[in-house]
Amino acid sequence: DTKGGILLLWDDSVVTVTNVQIGVYFFSATVAINNYGDDKTFKLTTVYGPTRSINKDAFYLELTSEKPPPGTKWLVNGDFNQIYRARDKNRANVVRSRLVRFRNALNTCELKEIHMQNRKFTWSNEQSNPTMSKLDSFFCNEDWDIEFATHILHALSSSLSDHCPLLLANDVGPKKPKSFRFENYWTKMPGFQCVVSEAWTEISCHVEPYQRLFHKLKRTGQKLRSWSKTLFSNSKVQLHMALEVILRLDLAQEQRELSLEERDL
């Protein structure tokens, strides 16, 4: 498969990732939540399932081979490119023998699904009368489920892909990152060049070149952040409004065919 893959990213200040293993269709690692000891350590397996039918059984076999020893907390997620229930597709043309084989693999692994709170499907072929399936999922074993009992899974807006992103978090939600984020559209807005020029040419008390560069970049970022809040206070609100509209259309599409105006929107 050349249209997808697996990318695992993490924050070193929050978790420690070790024992990385890579297979044909999976990526596994041991994840330890910092400052919580062994009780908050679990195995994470991320998969990208094959699209070709001839490779499905090899994928199921590889998945079952990753089952950890008893007592190990295990979380499995990714694009499985396969459903295990007929209701996870909005069409009747499902290959039931593959459903059974996938379900048997999940049972062998002793995995149960973490159900989404707000959607039935995660993928659409984006046609006027679309085919939709639940190809992306999170599964866990009983040990993981008991340890992280407050988890909740939501689908986000499918604004950038034919798949919708899935967010698994505890019931209080993820922490908001505080790092500086540069917005590409800033360069096209009036006043950008002036803000950068004034911030960059301010007199610095540092002598070492790397310190001067660091503080120039930091000061420029601070000035841009203040400038953007002043001039574009509504931009984030507008972005989230647009994402909310897309999500609501995603949900509506699961119940009925969208109108031409809705698809254009």
Rank of each mutant, 00 (worst) to 15 (best):
K178Q: 13
K178Y: 02
K178T: 15
S179A: 12
F180T: 05
F180I: 06
R181V: 13
F182V: 09
F182P: 02
E183P: 00
E183H: 07
N184M: 08
W186N: 02
T187Q: 12
M189T: 04
M189S: 06
P190L: 09
F192R: 02
F192D: 01
F192G: 00
F192L: 06
C194W: 07
V196S: 04
V196Y: 01
S197R: 14
E198D: 14
E198F: 01
W200N: 05
W200G: 04
W200A: 07
W200T: 05
T201D: 12
E202G: 08
I203Q: 13
I203T: 11
S204V: 07
S204I: 07
C205L: 15
C205D: 10
H206C: 10
E208M: 10
P209G: 05
Y210E: 12
Q211P: 00
Q211V: 10
F214N: 09
F214R: 15
H215M: 14
H215Q: 14
H215S: 12
K216D: 05
L217R: 06
R219L: 08
R219M: 07
T220D: 04
Q222M: 12
Q222N: 13
Q222K: 13
K223L: 06
K223A: 15
R225C: 07
S228F: 02
K229A: 06
L231Q: 03
S233K: 09
